[in-house]
Structures are given as structure tokens and as C-alpha cells.
């Protein structure tokens, strides 16, 4: 089963696209939606993937509180190579500390990451590499990340975890976390196909040709933008 945690509040910035794509691929029969105040499915059942999408600062504390009783279970799942996908600001939930102007919030501390909220918003297009796959996306965030974990990908264009760190996101066993926003799975069909293979899905992706066509157009645009910037 695939568990989507708290979709009613973890759904900002077009991350709904990931939920929609998981639903199209695996169908509703294989997806569990866990809502706030419910016991997560992973507590008593085996799950293949846990997905959490972007959450705002106000609800971040609520989600951390909700998951705190299950921190050890989550740690065990990470250690046992269960897949996790955290997009946008969802990685803050698993971080050690989240510091903003007013306060410092303790995250679940499941990844060796500290998040710092800054005043200035950082918008950028993003291009990075993981193995031989080019990752494309965009960022629009106030926060930077200081991470001592392995990265999800190496940055070629745009901002990595912070202005000085060219690494982007987190990879801890099979936990994948990225600050890239929006429909990450749809924007990166090659990476998504690899992820789905790890989840024992070996068929074609829904609309695979169309996804690759749009991906290649974007890739060429990003390369052009990069070339212009280098000139």
C-alpha cells in the first residue's frame, strides 16, 4: 500500500499533482489517505511508500505533533528501507530543528537536517543530476537547509540546499526528500519510473510518451537558459 499522510493540509504549491499521479498509476485500491487525528496506516500495516506534500508553517507543528508518538516506528521504517517521498516543505517535519524569526520548532529529528527560515524569498528554476538522470523543477522558498545527510541530487542550475551547498534534497536509505515544489513525479518521468520500479511497478507510466515529450522540451529550455546565463 501507498500511504498519503494528511492530504487535507499537506497539499500546497501544486504537490497535489504527485497525489494525482500516484492515484493514476496505482489506483485508489492501493492508496490509503490518512487524515489528521487518525492513526497512520503504517503503524499497524506494511506500506511500500509514504508520501507527504508541502505544509505551511502553521500546520507544520500540528503534523509534527501528530507524528511524534510514531517517531520510533518511522525510524524503524527508514532503517528497514521503506520508501518515503517528501516534497517541498514536507522535509521540515523530519528535520531536527526549524528556526524562523520568532521561534525554533523541534522537528521529528529523523534526518540530520536543520531548516532556517530567511526573510528573502528565493525563486529559481532547478536542474540537477542523480545517477545519470537530470532532475528538473522549480523552487520558491524562504528557507534554506543545512544537511549532513546524503543528497538526493547534485545541482547544475538554481539553488541547492542553501546558497553555498550544491547538493539538493536528502536521500537516507529509501527516504527521498526534495525542496522542489509542485508535481515532482510528473515533471521528472525518468526518475519517477526508477522510483516506481523500486516499488515493484514495472509497467509504462500513465501517459509516458507525453510526459517524456514535455520533459524534453523543458530540459532543452533549461539548457538554453543555462547557456544564456553563462554568457
Amino acid at each position: 500500500m501507498i500511504e498519503i499522510l494528511y492530504p487535507e493540509i499537506c497539499n500546497l504549491y501544486g504537490d497535489n499533482g504527485n497525489i494525482l499521479f500516484l492515484k493514476q498509476t496505482f489506483t485508489d485500491k492501493k492508496i490509503i489517505y490518512t487524515h489528521i487525528h487518525d492513526v497512520p496506516y503504517f503503524v499497524n500495516h506494511k506500506v511500500k511508500l509514504i508520501y507527504i506534500a508541502s505544509v505551511n508553517d502553521e500546520n507544520l507543528k500540528l503534523v509534527i505533533n501528530e507524528l511524534s508518538p510514531y517517531k520510533e516506528k518511522l525510524q524503524t521504517l527508514i532503517n528497514n528501507n521503506t520508501h518515503f517521498l517528501l516534497t517541498g516543505t514536507a522535509l521540515n517535519i523530519f528535520a531536527k530543528k526549524i528556526k524562523n524569526e520568532k521561534e525554533q520548532i523541534n522537528g521529528l529529528g529523523l534526518i540530520n537536517v536543520n531548516v532556517i527560515k530567511e526573510k528573502e524569498r528565493k525563486n529559481c528554476l532547478y536542474k540537477g543530476t542523480v545517477k545519470n538522470i537530470t532532475i528538473l523543477g522549480f523552487k520558491s522558498q524562504f528557507q534554506i537547509i543545512n544537511s549532513k545527510e546524503k543528497a538526493l541530487c547534485q545541482t547544475n542550475m538554481g539553488m541547492g540546499n542553501n546558497q553555498k551547498d550544491p547538493k539538493e534534497g536528502i536521500k537516507k536509505n529509501n527516504l527521498y526528500a526534495t525542496s522542489l515544489l509542485g508535481p515532482f513525479l510528473i515533471l521528472n518521468p525518468i526518475w519517477t519510473k526508477e522510483l516506481f520500479k523500486e516499488l515493484s511497478y514495472h509497467k509504462k507510466l500513465p501517459f509516458e510518451e507525453e510526459l517524456l515529450d514535455a520533459y524534453n522540451q523543458r530540459l532543452n529550455e533549461y539548457i538554453d537558459i543555462q547557456k544564456k546565463a553563462q554568457k
Binding site: Y13, G14, G182
Partner: peptide, 11 residues
Amino acid sequence: NSSETIAWFYD
């Protein structure tokens, strides 16, 4: 100046 953010399509 750039390619555009399309995240909003999914909201």
C-alpha cells in the same frame, strides 16, 4: 526570462 512554474496547474 525563464521557463514558467506550472505547479499551479495541479491546484
